[in-house]
Each structure stands twice: as structure tokens, then as C-alpha cells.
Simulated scan of single mutants.
Amino acid sequence: MNFRRLSQLFLFTIIFFALTACGSDSEADSSSNTTDENKDTITIGQINWPENIAVTNLWKAILEDEGYDVELMLIEMGPQLAALAEGDLDVAPEIWLPVQDKNYYEEYKDEAHFFEEPWYDNGKVGLAVPAHMDDINSIEDLNENKDTFDGKITGFEPGAGTMLTTDDVIQEYDLDYNLVESSEAAMITSVRNAAENQEPIVAPLWKPHFIFSEVDLKFLEDPNKTYGEVEEIFMATREGFNEDFKEVNNWMETFQLNDEQLGELMVYVKENEDNPIEGAEKWVEENQDVINEWME
């Protein structure tokens, strides 16, 4: 091999390794950018319930102020926790325990991380009727008043923990009633209209909920405590979330709302139904001292 060909081969080798190195750096940069983008995006499951819309928009407002991208995914409880277990969702913000979402907790407790402390500790769930129905005060009164309610319990989305518990209530009390599925919005409209027009209706409801401040309702006594007593609301995250978003995870673990705070947040969000994030942002602005306590 002559000197000229040797020089060309040597130059070609240098260029080849230079291009390879550039390509590797480019790929590494691209990979790094993709990871950063993924890391900065947090997906939170949302259910079309007033307190859920309020709290998910609250966290969206807080986290976007901190520079994170937040996607709220409208997905019902069963599929939401399945997505959490599969790692396709980061946060499920509303798990009612010890009764309402017990089945989901038992199913997914080994595949997702459920927080040890609740963010709300004064929940109540049960069958409710308009307060004007003086003769109906217990679930045990329902069968003898079946005709009054047309043998119908007006429900909401199937698969919700409270709907599953209501099926248990029907069996436990041997109620000759049908649980009618609809949506939370449709159920609330029916309850509001019935209460305002002094008409009968029975529906599975929960506190906190703004409907109790709009019309006069009462929970029926539950002697067998099938609905439980005080319910607490917990967050859950996918496995590994606490490592990928350590700071955010710490904030969520210290997150707590009392009745007054949650009630005010729900009112602000309801006043901005077309753009609920505005209601949440208003609450954030007025309660920065509360938020700072979560984020210390």
C-alpha cells in the first residue's frame, strides 16, 4: 500500500469516528430531551364529580405554577386504577376508604402506591332523600314505600365505588328496588328538581357535595352500616412516581383540606364551570399560606 492510499485511509477513519461520535452525541441529546419532557408531564385521573373536578384543577394550577405540564384525564374509577397499576397514569386523587373503594384498593394495592394519610377525613356516603319526607328516615323504611319511589334508586356512573356499595345495600336490606345508572350530573339534576318541587326521590349521595348547600336533603339511617361511617379520601400514584417526581410526591403526601377549605374550593370551581381552572387559580391565590405548608 503506497503512502497516498495510507493517508486517505487514515483520513477516512478519522472522519468516520468523528461522525459516529457526533451521531451518538445527537442521539444522547435527543434521548435526554425526551426524558426531560416526559419527566415534566404529570397525568392525573379525573372523574366528573364536583370535589374531584375541584381537586384535580387545584393540583393542575399548583403544579403548572411550579413549571410542570399537567394533563387531566377524564376516566372512571375502575379504568383509572387499572391505568395506574399499568403505569399509564401518574395520580389517582380520590380513593374513598374504608368502604366505598375497598374492592379497588384490594385489587390494586400491590400494583400501585396508596398514600397512608388521607387528604380529607370527614366524608359521608349513604342514601339520601329530600328533607320534607318526614316518614322516611331509614333504609329499612324503603320497602314499605316502594310505590312512592316507583321502586327506583336514582344512581350515577356504573363502576363507582358508591354504586357498587349501593348494590350491596340493596342485597343487605333485601330492597325490592332497581338501581338506575346515569351520570352524576343527571342524578344531581333529578335530586335538585325533586327537592325543589317537594317530590320523592332516593339517591346515593356523598359529602362533600355542593347539592347539600343548594337543597334540603337528609341521609337515611343505615343500621347495618353497609355504607360505613366516616369515610376518608386518599391519593394513589403509580409505582415509581415517588422516584420520578420526588418533590411533587412529597407535596401530595402532606396535602390536606378541611370542610371549609374544600367547600370554598368547590364553590369557586362551580362558579367557573366552563373553565374550572380559573376557580382553582382563584383559590390558590387566596390560600397561598395553606399551599406553602404542603410544600415546605
Results as ranks from 00 to 15, higher is better:
N2G: 15
F12L: 14
F12K: 01
I14T: 00
I14H: 00
F16L: 15
A18F: 12
A21G: 05
D25Q: 13
A28Y: 13
D29I: 11
S31W: 06
N33W: 02
T35L: 15
K39D: 13
D40Q: 12
T41C: 13
G45V: 07
Q46I: 01
N48K: 14
E51Y: 08
N52Y: 01
I53S: 07
A54G: 09
A54T: 06
V55D: 07
W59P: 03
I62M: 13
L63R: 05
E64G: 06
E64W: 04
G67V: 05
L74S: 10
M77K: 14
G78S: 12
L84P: 05
A92D: 09
P93T: 05
P93R: 06
I95E: 01
I95P: 00
P98V: 07
Q100D: 03
E116S: 15
E116D: 15
Y120G: 12
N122L: 02
K124W: 04
A128V: 10
A128D: 04
A131F: 00
A131P: 00
M133D: 05
M133G: 02
M133P: 02
D134K: 13
D134I: 03
D134P: 00
S138A: 13
L142I: 07
E144S: 11
K146D: 01
T148F: 12
F149Q: 10
I153D: 07
A160P: 00
T166E: 10
T166A: 07
D168S: 12
E172W: 02
Y173E: 09
D174L: 01
D174N: 15
D174E: 15
L175W: 05
L179R: 06
S183Y: 06
E184Y: 15
A185C: 01
S190P: 00
R192F: 09
A194V: 10
A194W: 09
E196G: 02
N197C: 02
P200S: 15
L205N: 05
P208Y: 04
S213A: 06
S213P: 01
D222Y: 04
P223Q: 06
G228N: 10
G228R: 08
G228I: 06
E229N: 06
E232Y: 08
F234M: 07
K246V: 02
E247Y: 07
N250G: 09
W251L: 07
M252A: 09
E253R: 13
Q261S: 12
Q261R: 11
G263W: 03
E273V: 11
D274Y: 03
P276Q: 12
E278K: 14
A280Y: 08
A280M: 14
W283D: 10
W283C: 10
N287S: 08
W294K: 08
M295T: 13
E296A: 07
